[in-house]
Nucleic acid binder design. Structure first.
Length: 727
DNA sequence: CGGTAATTCGTTTTT
DNA sequence: CGAATTACCG
């Protein structure tokens, strides 16, 4: 194929990004500048024009969805030849490597992949072994810390060595114990998938050499989101041939909390002195007002500002709606959608609502249901995380990897079979004392002739387990699931309950069965892999997220977090909950870096909009069941007035939007300021309960004088006080 | 041991 | 407000 066939439709910069095939290349791709397009065409160019064998190319993304999309588009350009190119996520790529070479590290190829809850369970077990009560030592905090260590590429030994204070020492000890437990269970957590791969490459250069020969051209998408270990992994793979192309946008770095380090992209040029840099600054997605407003927000961050331009002129101004409360906010959004759908003939799929936290989806769901507007919540409670689905999968995991203690624990007495927590505790002690797996400990207890009733129950379970282990090995994923659900009595137990919930669960299991069937069918032509279809299925469910399964549908409004929205675009976007404490989120306002990341998140959300962008905030919202007050986000005041329609602190209501208020609206109609009137009883997180005496100022600087029951009169800034209604 | 009732607890974002 | 742990009784 000649170059023109592949690069024909690209602009000069995009074209350049494809044509610089050798050596390190950094592509700075602003929002909506055709980043995916470049990746796709670059890969096609490498294979189609330069004649690089497809097997020599590795393209790494963060989500399976991005990988799938890219694969599809490359295939469209190249045809079947594209099949040899590996387009995969960091995690899937590493699983692939480890499934092949992990024995070097002393683990078995059948290792389990622990998700967050398995991992948390293992932390709890580690805490038990270290005699640290979960009351004062929160498992979640340790898990988080361990995760950060893993993201930074720190192994337990180094964590122990570098720990100075007692707290760090304790965390490092938990980390070490945790890692030992994982090893005993023949399991790796998410962080390990990358970390252990770099460890493998580090300790076994001959293994690394093999992969270096294999992947001579490496591309990394969303490079601004890479963490230290991922950086290290990429470096290991490309240090020799140096054919590395990274694509990203520092302004869209929103995963710092997960260990991502923007410096990876900011310092790429320093890191590779001979690197070429291409900037994509032409935006093809959004109208001018949207672009200007988004740029205005993010330009409040230090560093070079986002330079994006568009040829598109005109376009609606960005609209701001200040709602009374979360309900009002949701009703406003849904009414806008319903009206636009009716009057402009827009499909529901043209609309998306982005929020900061998953919990916010609720009020929108309620409002959408009320008006019969079809919608899809993306993310949130994931399918594979539902209890019944996890149970079914836990059976398969335990059967395939008998060392998998977390899976075994889950299924041991599920359905109830007379093996209670006393037995489990005894088994755990045996396992710990003899340094063996939970399953072996259970066998030991079962073999005890003096074990009485519980030993008999154990023998019964173990017999079933062993029989199933043999059967399941030969079965396809859907067959295996069906067999397990049937033989264990799990399904029967569920059906016997005959409650609405249990029926929903049965339905979910059916869905799982269907999903497993689809997977099997899609994988049927793969030829005799070393690994069974069932094993591949379990890998897939461990690494797949809800977003990956999400197909943008033309007939549904999409609801998701701003994080999930990255990489997507919609004609009409609502970015909601723009309040201090929410966006920026209170947990991120500790340091400047946190605020800057929130600002970028806001930018990401705004730049998803193609034609029309709405920003909303509410002065009052329900949180934890009780009412909390808030003031508009600082990000709103960072947008120049002239770009906004509907100013702050205005008392615009639905009526101003040319719509009738909802029937039951009158109750909520009270102005936000009225809610904080003198006499109101409030609760302050530190000062406790008190009575509002006086209101001082308005907007972001609004203060209240409050007489607190315990500490007397104080003046607090509403914006930071996180007041709740105490009545 | 198993199920239910009571209580406590917490929310950021996720591969 | 809901999930998730704990308390308690049959």
């Amino acid at each position: 194929m000649n170059a023109e066939q592949i690069l024909g439709g690209l602009n000069p910069e995009q074209r350049q990004a494809c044509e610089i095939t050798e050596g390190p290349l950094l592509v700075l791709a602003g929002a909506g500048s055709g980043k995916t397009r470049v990746l796709v065409h670059r890969v096609a160019y490498l294979v189609g024009t330069c004649g690089i064998p497809p097997e020599h190319i590795l393209a790494v993304t963060f989500t399976n969805k991005a990988a799938g999309e890219m694969r599809e588009r490359v295939e469209k350009l190249l045809g079947p030849e594209a099949g040899g190119i590996l387009v995969s996520t960091f995690h899937s790529t590493c699983v692939r490597i480890l499934r092949r070479d992990v024995p070097h590290l002393g683990l078995s190829r059948s290792f389990a992949i622990y998700d967050e809850s398995d991992s948390l369970g293992t932390v709890k077990e580690a805490l038990r072994r270290l005699d640290l009560g979960p009351k004062q030592f929160e498992p979640r905090r340790f898990r988080w810390r361990i995760d950060q260590w893993k993201n930074a590429g720190v192994l337990p030994a180094r964590a122990v060595d570098t720990a100075v204070d007692l707290d760090a020492k304790r965390s490092a000890a938990v980390y070490a114990t945790y890692q030992k437990l994982l090893e005993e269970q023949n399991a790796l957590d998410f962080g390990d998938l990358i970390l252990q791969t770099t460890e493998l490459f580090h300790r076994f250069p001959e293994v690394l050499a093999w992969y270096r020969r294999r992947w001579q051209y490496v591309l990394v998408d969303e490079y601004q989101d890479t963490n230290r270990v991922q950086y290290r992994l990429v470096k290991q793979l490309t240090d020799e041939h140096r054919n590395l192309c990274v694509v990203g946008d520092p302004n869209q770095s929103i995963y710092g909390w997960r260990g991502a380090d923007v410096r990876n992209i900011l310092e790429f040029a320093n890191d590779h002195p001979d690197a070429k840099v291409v900037k994509l600054e032409r935006n093809y997605r959004s109208t001018r007002p949207i672009l200007d407003a988004a740029s205005a927000v993010v330009s409040h961050n230090p560093g070079p500002r986002a330079e994006l331009w568009t040829e598109r002129e005109g376009g609606d101004p960005v609209r701001l709606y200040e709602a009374v409360d979360d309900r009002d906010e949701a009703q406003f959004v849904v009414r806008q959608i319903a009206t636009a759908a009716r009057d402009e003939g827009r499909a529901y799929g043209d609309f998306a609502v982005f929020y900061r936290t998953n919990a916010q989806s609720r009020s929108f769901e309620e409002a959408l249901l009320e008006l019969d507007v079809p919608y899809a919540v993306v993310g949130g409670v994931r399918f594979y995380e539902r209890a019944e689905v996890k149970d079914a999968l836990a059976y398969l995991r335990a059967l395939l990897n008998p060392a998998d203690g977390m899976a075994l624990r889950r299924i041991l007495n599920n359905p109830p079979r007379g093996i209670g927590k006393a037995t489990l505790e005894r088994a755990e002690i045996v396992a710990q004392e003899e340094g063996t797996t939970l399953l072996r400990a259970l066998r030991r207890l079962g073999d005890d002739p003096a074990g009485g009733r519980s030993a008999a129950k154990l023998r019964e379970f173990l017999a079933l387990f062993d029989a199933l282990a043999e059967e399941v090995a030969e079965l396809s994923p859907p067959e295996a699931i069906a067999r397990v659900l049937d033989r264990t009595g799990y399904l029967e137990h569920l059906q016997r309950q005959a409650t609405p919930e249990s029926e929903a669960r049965v339905e979910n299991l059916r869905e799982l069965l269907t999903g497993a069937g689809d997977f099997d069918a899609a994988n049927a032509g793969q030829g005799p892999d070393e690994r069974s279809s069932l094993e591949l299925f379990l890998d897939q469910v461990a690494l797949v997220s809800d977003l990956d399964a999400y197909e943008g549908r033309a007939d549904r409004v999409s609801l998701m977090t701003a994080h999930t929205a990255k990489g997507l675009e919609y004609p009409v976007v609502f970015l909601v909950g723009l309040e201090e404490g929410l966006l920026p989120h209170a947990a991120s306002t500790r340091d400047a870096g946190g605020i800057e990341e929130e600002r970028r998140l806001c930018y990401v959300g705004m730049t998803r909009a193609m034609e029309r962008l709405f920003l909303t905030c509410a002065s009052e919202r329900r949180r934890y069941g009780s009412r909390t007050f808030s003031v508009p986000s600082r990000f709103l005041s960072e947008i120049p007035r002239e770009l906004l329609q509907g100013g702050l602190a205005s008392t615009r209501s639905l009526r101003d939007e040319g719509m009738e208020p909802a029937l039951d609206y009158s109750l909520d109609q009270s102005d936000a300021d009225d809610a904080l009137r003198p006499g109101l009883r409030v609760r302050h997180p530190i000062f406790g309960t008190g009575t509002v005496m006086e209101r001082i100022g308005a907007g972001a600087s609004q203060k209240l004088r409050i007489r607190f029951d315990r500490v007397g009169v104080k003046t607090v800034l509403v914006r930071f006080a996180n007041l709740e209604s105490a009545s």
